[in-house]
Computed example of a mutant assay.
Amino acid sequence: MVLFRRLLGEVLRAHRVDRGMTLREVSAEARVSLGYISEIERGQKEASSELLASLCGALDVPLSSVLRSVSDAVALEEAAMAPTPIPVLPVDARVAASVASAA
């Protein structure tokens, strides 16, 4: 199962690390507790839209960019989890193949 909150946390953490910011710095800038941001980054808590906007502001990254990255990550996980179809020959074709291999 794809967990949106886990992927969102991974994207936010990547942006924070890319900017060279600590949790403490993001916490101060976003006015959100350090512990709560940590839980969001680890995918343990859901971020409200207001909180997400505040975090994006602190990270100086557009909300649309974060959501696009999360959407791409969701699509990749869904594709990886999709069952691989196994082709099944119609009964007539199986019989024909069986007869041909017996000959």
Rank of each mutant, 00 (worst) to 15 (best):
A79M: 08
R19P: 15
P90K: 03
A53C: 08
E39V: 13
A93D: 11
H15L: 06
R24E: 13
P83F: 15
T84P: 15
V2Q: 02
S98R: 14
A30F: 01
A58P: 03
Q44H: 13
R24G: 12
E77A: 06
A75I: 09
L7T: 04
L7E: 02
L12S: 02
L52E: 00
R19Y: 06
D72E: 11
S98L: 15
R94C: 14
R5A: 06
A47N: 02
E78H: 09
C56A: 01
T22M: 02
M1F: 12
E29Y: 06
G20N: 00
P90M: 00
G43W: 00
E41T: 00
T22A: 02
G57A: 05
V2R: 03
A73M: 03
E78R: 07
E39H: 12
E50W: 13
T22L: 03
A102I: 08
L34V: 15
A96L: 12
V32N: 04
V99K: 08
V91D: 14
R16C: 02
A102K: 06
V66Q: 00
L55T: 03
V61N: 01
L51I: 14
Q44I: 14
L51K: 10
E77N: 05
G43I: 01
K45A: 06
R68S: 13
A80D: 09
V95K: 04
L8I: 02
S101D: 13
L12Q: 04
S101R: 11
V2C: 04
P87A: 07
P62T: 05
S101Y: 12
D92S: 10
D72P: 10
